[in-house]
Structure formats: C-alpha cells, structure tokens
C-alpha cells in the first residue's frame, strides 16, 4: 500500500529519538571535558578516564557487579528457558495460571517491593535453616535471578512460539530420541534468544540499585551503589567517563549480536538442510 509520509508522524519520531539520545550524548561529550564543572566546557581531555582507572572503590565494585551479573545471567537463562518451554509447550497443567502470573509479575513489580520482600525472605530463611548465612554476593545473585529469569522467559518464549514444530517431528520420525532432538534441533534454533536473554539478564543485574541495596550486607557494594552514593553528592566527571564506557560496551555488544544473528540467518537461508546425524 502506497501512502504519503505524514510529516507530523516523522517529526514526532525525530523528537522521540532526540529525547532518548540527547542526555546520553551530553554525558559522553562532557566525559572528555577538562573542567571539573560538568557543564562548563574547558577543553578536551581524557583525564577522568585515567582517574576512573585508578579509583579502587569503583573498580572493586565493578568487579563484584560483573561476577554477580555473570552468575545471575547464566542461572537466569537456565531457569527462564525451562519456564518458557513450560509455557509454550506444555499446554494446560494444574497451576498454570499461578505459574504464568508468577512469571509475568516480576516484569513490572516495583523494585522497592521486590527488594524488601527478598530481604525479609533471606532473613527468615537464615533464621530457620541457617542459609544463606549473612548477606552479600549470594543473596544479591538470588534476588536478581528471580526477576531476570522473568525477562529471559519473555525473550525465549517469543522465539519458541515462532518455532516450526515440524522440524522436531521430522527428526523424531527419523528416529532421533527426544533429548537428541532438543540438543540438535531445538537448542540451535532458539540459541539467539538464549544469547539475547543472557545479555539482558546480565545488564539488568549490572544496572540494579534498589534490590541490591536491600539484600546486600555491609560487605558487598555493587557498582550502582557506588555510582548512586557519588551521584547524591553531586555531578562527577568520573561517573561521566564510566557512563561512556558502559554505553560504548553496550553498543558494541548489540552491534556484534545483531551482526551474528544476521549472519546466522543468511547462512541458514543458504543451507536449509540440517544434519542430525
């Protein structure tokens, strides 16, 4: 259908993108500013990056956050994939409504509620069974998994439901066992969504301030907690440098993932025969 391009629509679209990107771009620009005053341009410099790399507090918090995010992402992908398979493949079973409610509620549940609820759970559990002893990296990871897995489920669910089930049936007709069908057919096809889910869970965990603040003990300080306390004291050029590094990493990862998926798609189109031996 040919239609003329409505001017207003594209003006709004441009405005929307400007709104989304101006703050991020301003952060990047001022991260290269000589002046400590974030809003006065004093000349180009990479001074704040140097200081950032020598800020032990930020570095150790970043290291802790990366470890938590990796563990969280890996376990969330396993849990989220199982939940997605349950929702897409298993049809009706007893307790399905409760299950799908529990899967979708963490997507929207306010962080303060999730944080408080998780903390009270951990305190009660420690009181009753002695685990998890104290609070720190374990409790942060456990609390993160619960809400990240919900996001993984959404991502994997959408890929699974577009999946052509006749591929599995064909493999089964040719004598492959269900487990082998899963490993050789299902898993490779949903693999991009597992990767996307892993990355999403990773960033969600890396980004979380509120839940981590509730469930972290005095010993565990994650990156967002350090950023938050420094931001409360005022604008700091080091945080701008950190933000720029994060934006650059995320952009690179998304471009790489997009390119990989694109390549896989073209490869599959070129070679439609799947070897299941």
């Amino acid at each position: 259908m040919k239609r003329r391009r409505p001017f207003l629509l594209f003006t709004l679209l441009a405005f929307g993108y400007a709104f989304l990107y101006v703050p991020i771009i301003s952060l990047i620009v001022y991260s290269f500013n000589v002046s400590r005053l974030v809003t006065v341009w004093g000349g180009f410099s990479t001074r704040w990056y140097g200081e950032l790399l020598h800020n032990d507090q930020i570095l150790s918090a970043a290291w802790l956050s990366l470890r938590i995010a990796t563990m969280n992402a890996t376990l969330s992908v396993i849990l989220g994939t199982l939940a997605a398979i349950t929702l897409v493949r298993f049809g009706k079973f007893r307790g399905r409504t409760l299950f799908s409610t529990m899967v979708s509620a963490p997507l929207v549940m306010p962080d303060v509620i999730l944080g408080l609820a998780s903390l009270l759970l951990f305190v009660t559990m420690e009181h009753l069974i002695g685990w998890p002893a104290g609070r720190g990296i374990t409790t942060i990871t456990l609390a993160h998994i619960t809400f990240s897995a919900a996001f993984v489920t959404v991502v994997v669910q959408s890929r699974l439901s577009q999946f052509d089930i006749s591929l599995e049936e064909a493999a089964m007709d040719l004598g492959a066992r269900p487990w082998k069908v899963f490993l050789l057919i299902t898993l490779p096809i949903i693999a991009p969504s597992l990767l996307a889910g892993w990355l999403l869970a990773f960033t969600l965990s890396l980004d979380d301030l509120v839940i981590a603040s509730f469930v972290a003990g005095p010993g565990a300080t994650t990156l967002p907690m350090v950023v938050y306390s420094s931001v409360r004291l005022g604008v700091s050029p080091q945080i701008n440098a950190l933000a720029t590094l994060i934006v650059a990493t995320v952009t690179l990862c998304i471009l790489l993932a997009g390119w990989l998926m694109h390549r896989q798609e073209t490869l599959r189109r070129r070679a439609p025969v799947i070897d299941i031996s």
Binding site: L20, P23, I24, L27, L206, V227, V231, V250, T251, I254
Partner: peptide, 25 residues
C-alpha cells in the same frame, strides 16, 4: 535497535544525565 539501546544502558546513569541538563547552571 535505537529504541532498545538506551534501555540496555544503565538506568541510574541515564537518570544522572538529567541532573547535568536540568541544574540551574
């Protein structure tokens, strides 16, 4: 992708960006 990208960068830092924009100076 351009809509999704900000969603992937730190929420806290994107809120922080507005402090620099909205401050009195």
């Amino acid at each position: 992708m351009l809509v999704i990208l900000p969603f992937w960068t730190s929420f806290l830092i994107r809120v922080y960006a507005w402090i620099g924009i909205l401050k009195s100076n």
